[in-house]
Design a protein around this nucleic acid. Sequence first.
RNA 1: GGACGCUUAGCUCAGCUGGUAGAGCAUCUGCUUGACGUGCAGAGGGUCAGCGGUUCGAGUCCGUUAGCGUCCACCA
Length: 874
Amino acid sequence: MEKQLAKTYDPKEVETRIYDFWVNNGYFHTKIDKSKKPYTIVMPPPNITGQLHMGHALDNALQDTLIRFRRMQGYNALWVPGTDHASIATEAKIVEAMRKEGITKEEIGREAFLERAWAWKNEYGSRITKQLRKLGSSCDWDRERFTMDEGCSEAVKEVFVRLYDKGLIYRGERMINWCSKCCTSISDAEVEYEEKEGHFWHIRYPFADGSGYIELATTRPETMLGDTAVAVHPEDERYQDKIGKMLILPLVGREIPVVADTYVEKDFGTGVVKITPAHDPNDFEVGRRHDLPIINVFTEDGYINENGGKYQGMHKDDCRKAIVKELEEQGYLIKVEPHVHNVGTCYRCHTAVEPRISTQWFVKMEPLAKPALEVVKNGETQFIPKRFEKTYFHWMENIKDWCISRQLWWGHRIPAWYCADCGEITVSKTTPDCCSKCGSKNINQDSDTLDTWFSSALWPFSTLGWPENTEDLKHFYPTSTLVTGYDIIFFWVARMIFSGIEQMDKTPFDTVLIHGIIRDAQGRKMSKSLGNGIDPLEEIEKFGADALRFTLSTGNAPGNDMRYLPEKAEASRNFANKLWNAARFILMNLDENEPAPHIPNELLIEDKWVLKKFNDIVKEVTDNLEKFEIGVAVSKLYDFIWDVLCDWYIELCKVRLNGEDETAKAQARAVLVYVMSSTLKLLHPFMPFITEEIWQTLPHEGESIMISDFPVYSDALNFTEDEKNFEKVMAAIKAIRNRRSEMNVPPSKKAEVFIATADKNTFESCGGFFVKLASASKVTVGDDFNIDGAVNIVTADASVFIPMNELVDLEAEKKRLEKELNDAEKNLASLLGRLSNQAFISKAPAQVVEADKARAETLKEKIALIKEGIAKIG
RNA sequence: GGACGCUUAGCUCAGCUGGUAGAGCAUCUGCUUGACGUGCAGAGGGUCAGCGGUUCGAGUCCGUUAGCGUCCACCA
C-alpha cells in the first residue's frame, strides 16, 4: 500500500478539506426517516453580533459529540442550527456605529433604521456560523434558522395572540426596570446586581409646624425630588406622636406626610424611610397603600424632568452631587457614611437600572409556571446535573410576571394596534384595517418590540416549522437534549419549557445537559473588559479543532466551571499526534491489497487480550455517552488508545510483523486494522477530523466514518480467561523493567531470563515479548530454577531469575527481597485480619469476600516465592 | 438573609450507585529500541480541609465547622 502519512499530524490541512467533504456529500442533512428513532438537538442560537468564544466552543463541542454518536448509533439524528437577533445588543451596536457617523435613530426613522439593521445582519450574521464550522459542528445547515426569519416571526405573532386571547398577556402600568442607556425596559432576569461602594446620606426633614425635624438616611438623595411621604413603623415608640404630621421636603418645599407602614424595619438605621413611589418598587407599594401621589422626576435617558424644578435638565448623577451640596449648605445634611450596597445594573451595558413606572406588556407567569414545574418534578424533563433542578424550582416558584415589551426597534414588533378614537386595543397576527371595536381606520401599531427571549423561548418548535404542522415538527418534536450553560437557565431554558408545554402540550426536551463556564488560568471569568479571553479560533489554529474539542470535553465534571490552560490543549494535540503515528505505523506495514477490517479466525493470546480490552471500552464508552458522561467516556478512550493500543499492543505486534511468518504477519495486521478502525469510530464523536482522515486512509468499507455504525459490544470478544493469563505476562514484563531501571541497567544490555511459573503454557507462548519488551537475550520457562547470584523478581504468578552476576550486589539484593517480603506480609496480615472478622464475612457481599480471599491466596504464594529467593542467596 | 458548589499528589482536575486513591502537566532517573522526543521505560510525591456520626468497611452517605466561589432575595 502506497499511502503515506506525514510524520506529524497537520490539522490545518486536514480540517477544511474534511469539513467540505462532509458538507458536499450532504452528511449533515437529515432526511426524515420514520423507521428510525428521532434524536433532536436545537442549538442555542448565538447572537448575530457575536464572535465565537470558549463558551460557544464548549457548548457546540458537546452537542456535536452527542449528535455524531446518535447518528452513528442509527438514530434519525437532527441538529438544528441558527442565530438570534439579540435585540438590545444588536441595536446598541448599530446605534453606536451611527453615532460615529453623527446620526441618531430618531433622525433617520424606524424604517431606515431597520434597513440598516438588516444590512448589518446580512453582513455579520453569518460570521459566527462560519466559525462554528471550524469546530466541526455537524449541524443541518439546510435547516438553519434565524429568530427573525419569516417562520419564527410568524410563531412569535401566533404565540402573542394566543396568550393575549387567553388573558396571559396583558398591558399595564407597573414598576419596571429601566435602563437609561439602552433606553428601554428590561425584565427582572436581565438585572444583574453588583456590589458597589456608596454612601448613606443622613438628612433632616423638618416638620411643617416648626416642631423640629425627623432624621432619615438614603443612598439615592436625588430621588428626594420625587418624595411624597416619609414612613415609620406603626409600632415604633420613637415616632408614635409623629405619625400623620406633615414635613417640608428640603430643597423642594413640598409638604409630605409621615405615614406608618410595616414595611419599615424599626431596627435598621434611623427607622425612617423616605418614600419615592415613582422610583422604588417598595416605595411604590407603600404609596399604593397610603394613596400617595406618584411623582416621576427622571426622563427616559436619565436626566431630571420638569418635576425636578430647578434641577431639570441635569443628569441624575450630577443632580445627586448638586443636591448633596445644597443640603449641606442649607444645613439639612447631618452626616455621610460609607455604605456598600447592591446596585441593579443592566446585563447588557451595566449601567445602573432605574425602577420606573411605565406602561408595558407582561406575560402572566403563574398559570404557565405551574405545569413547567410539574414536568421537571415528574421527570419528563431532567436536568444533568440534577442539582440545577433546585435552582429551576426556586425560580419558577417565585416567578413574577415577565415584562416583554422593549422600547427598541430591532426585534419583533408587538402585534397590537391602538384606536385613536375609542382607545380599543386590537391584537392580531395580520395588520388590521380598522379598530376591532368601533371600526375606526385611525389605528396605530404599538411601537415597541418584544424581548429577545420571547422568540428564543419558542426555538424548539418554531425552528421545526410551527405554527404550521410540518412533517419535521411531527417527527422531531419534542426534541431530545438541550445543551447549555447554567447561566441561561432562567433566561432561556425555563421559558422554553413553559412555552413548549403551553403551545405544543409537550415539554420541549427530555434532558437538559448543563455545563459550566470556561475561565482563564487564574480562574477568572473571561471578559472583554479584563481582556483575558482566549480566542478558540486561535487555539484551533495552534492545536487543531480536535485538540480543542478534546480539551473542552474532558477533565471536568458536568456543570462545573473549568479553567482553560494552554498546556491542556497541548496535551490534547500530543494525543492527536500519538494516534496519527499509531495509524502511520499500521499503514506502513499493510499489504497492497489489505482486506477490509475483520477479525481473523486464528487469534493469539495478545490478540484476544486487546480485543477483550476493546470490547470493554465499547461498552463503557456507549454507557457513558448514553448517560451524558462525556468527559469520562473520552478519558477512557484516551487511556485505551495510549496505553493499551499504542504502548502495548502495537509493540507486541512488532514481534510478528518483524518476523518471517507471512500468516502471522497477516494475522497481526488484520487485528491491528480492525482494532484501530473500530477505535476511530468510538473516538469520532469527540475528534471528528483526525478520525475521518485516518479511517479514510486505512482499509475501510463505506464512504465516511461519520455515517458508519458505532461499534457494539460483542459476547464473542469477551476473552476473560486470555485476558487474565496475558496480564500475568505483562506483570512479569513490568516487574523486570522496573527492576532493571532501579539497577540502572540500560536496555542495550541484554540478559538471559528464567521464569519459574505454574502457567508454563502462557509464558512459553509469550517468550518473544520478554525479548522485545524486557531486554531478554534468551527466555527459559520452567517449574523452578536454582541459579547462583541471580536477580530474583517475584510477581503473583511467576518468579523470574536474571543472572547478571557482575551487577548483583547480593547483600543489597537480599535487603530488597526482605523489604518486599515485609510489605507483602503486612499486606497479608491486614487481609487476614479482615477475613477473620466475623462481621465482615457475614455482612459484606460474597464477591467482595471472595476477592479478598483470592488476593490473600496469591499473596501467600508470592511470599513463598520471595522466601525461596532469599534462601537461595543464603 | 436563603440556596448551591468547591476544598484529593507541587499545579490543573477526574473519581458513577461506599470495597485497600487516579490522570495530565511539573520534578527526578535511564533510553539516538526505524510509528511517534508532540516519544519510550521507570521513580518520587496524597492521614482525599477539620471534627463527629452511620457502617464489617467512608474520598464516596449523614451532621457540623472553616476557607473560597456562584446564584437568588434585598433594608431605605
